[in-house]
């Protein structure tokens, strides 16, 4: 069954969706969209690094994404530059450096477009193992972090005052984001990864009464949108990554936006 590239693509897409969407909820709740994007943009450097060292590319991306995540956390306390400005500088520096490094290191062997916009139809069995193994590990981590992370998302001082280890929890969370970015890259590409985290979350909001409902709804919506995007891609022979983003956008504008408007928000 896994020999069919379409089945592999669908499985990879669904795995990525149910991995990225619940994490995306916290990214949205904690106002970290740009943070996630900056980590994602560092992914291409990881690809180059993987090529250079001859190691697995996913491992290379995980390594650079984790390094970028820790760097961003270390800078959070500084007051010299506004944080979003710093994120912008680092994001585009990392992306530009990644583009140059990738062309130097990989040359023609490296499918740049595939890393930037995803190449879900070329997903291998190894990729599939990475994605599903990683999804299980990351979601288990998120499950474990759930209560403290939720508490510090609602109010960080409250959580800290009542004994939640906020620093450790926050660091563990951004490591989960870094791993997620690395795993999702193959499916949707580093430039579009944040859409898989943010769109389904935004779409799920008007229908959710609890944080858990929102995470589950976002995961289901993301999985549906990925399948829809795959269909679009096959039907009209369009690039898979952008097709998935269009399906995610449809989910938001056609399902969630009317519900939001109806509620008078």
């Amino acid at each position: 069954m896994l020999d069919d590239f379409l089945i592999r693509a669908a499985l990879a897409g669904i795995g990525t969706a149910i991995l990225a969407a619940p994490l995306g909820c916290f990214v949205v709740w904690r106002r970290m969209a740009y943070f996630g994007e900056t980590i994602a943009y560092s992914g291409l450097l990881g690809v180059a690094l993987g090529f250079l060292l001859g190691i697995d590319l996913t491992l290379g991306v995980i390594a650079t994404a984790v390094a970028m995540a820790l760097l961003l956390t270390a800078f959070q306390a500084q007051r010299k530059i506004p944080y979003d400005t710093l994120l912008g500088i680092l994001a585009h520096t990392a992306l530009a450096a990644g583009l140059i490094a990738a062309s130097f290191v990989g040359g023609a062997r490296l499918d740049l477009m595939g890393y930037l916009f995803g190449d879900i139809l070329a997903v291998s069995k190894t990729d599939l193992a990475w994605i599903w193994g990683g999804a299980v590990a990351v979601l288990a981590g998120l499950f474990w972090l759930w209560r403290p992370l939720l508490a510090m998302t609602v109010n960080e001082d409250l959580a800290a005052a009542e004994g939640v280890p906020v620093r450790r929890t926050g660091t563990a969370f951004i490591l989960l984001i870094a791993v997620t970015v690395a795993l999702a890259m193959k499916v949707i590409g580093i430039l579009l990864i944040t859409s898989l985290m943010i769109f389904p979350t935004a779409a799920a909001r008007p229908f959710a009464k609890t944080p858990e409902q929102m995470a589950v709804l976002a995961g289901a919506g993301a999985a549906a949108a990925v399948c829809g995007g795959l269909y679009l891609s096959l039907r009209f022979d369009t690039a898979a990554g952008p097709s998935i983003v269009i399906a995610l956008a449809a989910l938001f504008f056609l399902v969630a936006a009317p519900a939001l408007a109806f509620r008078g928000r």
Binding site: R147, A151, V154, E162, G163, P211, M214
Partner: peptide
């Protein structure tokens, strides 16, 4: 409150 949370759930925020 983009995070959907009932008062009931808020009561068990840290324990």
């Amino acid at each position: 409150w983009i995070i959907p949370l009932s008062v009931r759930r808020f009561m068990s925020l840290t324990q």
